[in-house]
Amino acid sequence: MAARIERLVTSGTFSLDGGTWDVDNNVWIVGDDHEVIVIDAAHDADAIARAVGGRTLRAIVCTHAHNDHIDAAPALAERTGAPVLLHPDDLPLWKQTHPDRAPDAELTDGQGLAVAGIELTVLHTPGHAPGAVCLYAPDLNALFSGDTLFAGGPGATGRSYSHFPTIVDSIRDRLLTLPGDTVVHTGHGDTTTIGAEAPHLQEWIDRGF
């Protein structure tokens, strides 16, 4: 069976800079009936493992290291034997949540991740976090944007390790250059498309998201 995209929503909390907020996260499972990767192991390792089922989990890919995107990663890795992959620029954030367990391997810009006969390309898109990445899968007409780009604008940049001009550069230079019909699968909330978001770049800049 051809590769496909599955969405699981898990609930928990996001904590940074002394504040804690309730959040729902999108966990994306990409693959076929035999093998998959998980993008952002959020909150509930048991639920994610059930969604993976008997398929081989090739990797647990972290779009960034805010706790709500990585809190279930070590437990899922222990259960499945899959490696946890993170861009090294986000190690300071990772260590706030998992000080005694490092990621297993690094993500690098331009790296290809193969699963179920397709390839996802890692795009380093700092701004929301220093090591934030997106994953582009042209065979699925899909971009997995983490918290870099949402339906309606960029991810938040008002907390530690974030920078608004940097996220604008990342979106303009790395994401809005993709085909307009590319479906953007976000870290929270609804999907969008590159074409829907591209016309609003200047508005975001003027509003200073």
Rank of each mutant, 00 (worst) to 15 (best):
P126Q: 05
A77S: 15
D90R: 07
T97D: 03
R50T: 12
R50P: 03
A77Y: 00
A73Y: 01
R79S: 08
T80M: 00
A129M: 12
L76M: 02
A142F: 01
P74W: 00
K95W: 13
L140K: 11
T80R: 06
L86M: 06
V133F: 06
A49R: 14
R58V: 08
D89N: 13
A116Q: 06
D139F: 04
A102N: 11
P92E: 04
T56R: 15
H128P: 08
A129Y: 08
P138L: 05
D109M: 05
T97Q: 08
V84H: 06
C134H: 08
A75R: 14
D68Q: 14
L123N: 12
L140Q: 03
A77W: 00
G110E: 10
V133Q: 11
L93C: 08
L57W: 00
D104C: 07
L85V: 07
L91A: 04
D100N: 15
L120H: 04
A65D: 06
K95D: 11
N67G: 15
P88C: 02
I118T: 08
H66D: 15
L113Q: 11
A75V: 09
D104V: 05
P126H: 03
P74H: 03
A116I: 03
Q96H: 13
D139S: 14
G81T: 05
I118H: 08
H87P: 02
H98T: 05
R79P: 06
G131F: 01
V115M: 02
A114Q: 12
I48M: 06
V84T: 10
P83T: 00
C62M: 13
H64Y: 05
H124K: 14
H128C: 12
L86E: 04
A137P: 12
P88K: 04
T125Q: 10
A51M: 13
W94I: 05
L113Y: 10
K95R: 15
P138C: 03
A114N: 11
E78W: 05
G131S: 11
V133N: 09
L57G: 02
P103D: 07
A114S: 15
G81R: 06
H98L: 03
Q111I: 05
A75T: 11
R79V: 01
P83C: 01
H66W: 14
P130Q: 09
A47N: 07
A51I: 07
D104F: 06
P126A: 04
L113R: 10
V61H: 02
R101C: 09
V122R: 07
T108E: 13
A105S: 14
L120T: 06
G53S: 02
L57H: 03
I70V: 14
H98N: 09
A129G: 14
L93I: 12
L93V: 10
C62Q: 09
V122L: 04
H98A: 09
R79K: 15
G131V: 11
D139M: 13
V115E: 05
G110V: 02
